[in-house]
Design a protein around this nucleic acid. Structure first.
Length: 210
DNA sequence: TCATTAACACGGG
DNA sequence: CCCGTGTTAATGA
């Protein structure tokens, strides 16, 4: 059961009391661990997540089995894909994997529709979420189209450090290569250069930004 | 020029 | 020994 306090803590200024009450009644509190798979491709979405704590990475599958990191979700965010799926009864086009440990509230699909009509605050939450995700998607596309791998890697490292709230990144070169949809050789080489530039420090399984 | 794939050596756990 | 890392050589876009 979701406590009203928890919802208020994170969404207090956004939702009217009555809506907070309803979320508390039907919402389901879910704890997740880093690397938990929360949503997979083709999966049918049965609920919508309201992220309280932690970070979730949203991945897109490539035509040839590769993957690509689109963006991270953080506290107060929700997944636009989920909303699109809920409203359109479609399967997921993305994969959501926990980047860190965290906590979210799961709201059943059935309520989503009703609340859009009933609560102005929910309606604007849904719309601004769409807007935010679209903006992030555009940034992801720009990054991909106009940046070389070196800059993509830098941006990626900075973003990862930010969502983990730590300058220490616990990832292997292979994992990074996978998320940026490139090869490990390239990542190893670029990281080595960045180390020489004193941008970071390399250790086994650990990268420390300076 | 820069990425990819394959291959290999090194070394820490 | 296994895995992550660093590097090279060949090939391609």
């Amino acid at each position: 059961m979701v406590t009203i306090e928890k919802i208020q803590e994170f969404y207090a200024n956004q939702f009217e009391a009555e809506l907070v009450q309803e979320i508390a009644e039907v919402g389901q509190l879910v704890q997740f661990k880093a690397n938990d798979m929360l949503i997979d491709f083709q999966q049918i979405i049965i609920g919508m997540p309201l992220l309280l704590k932690g970070a979730i990475k949203i991945m897109r599958e490539d035509f040839d089995e590769g993957e690509l990191l689109l963006y991270f979700l953080e506290r107060g965010d929700t997944c636009a894909m989920t909303m699109a799926c809920c409203l359109g009864n479609k399967k997921s086009e993305i994969r959501a994997i926990a980047e860190t440990d965290g906590e979210l509230i799961f709201v059943p699909v059935t309520k989503m529709d009703a609340w859009i009509a009933k609560y102005a605050s929910w309606r604007s939450f849904v719309f601004t979420s769409y807007q935010d995700r679209l903006d992030e998607m555009l940034r992801a596309i720009d990054n991909l189209a106009f940046n070389d791998t070196n800059n993509r890697l830098k941006n990626y490292l900075i973003e990862v450090a930010s969502v983990n709230k730590s300058r220490t990144i616990n990832k292997t070169h292979q994992e990074i290569a996978y998320e940026l949809n490139t090869s490990r050789v390239v990542i190893s080489r670029l990281l080595k250069v960045l180390e020489k530039e004193n941008f970071l420090e390399l250790n086994r399984n650990v990268i420390v930004l300076k």
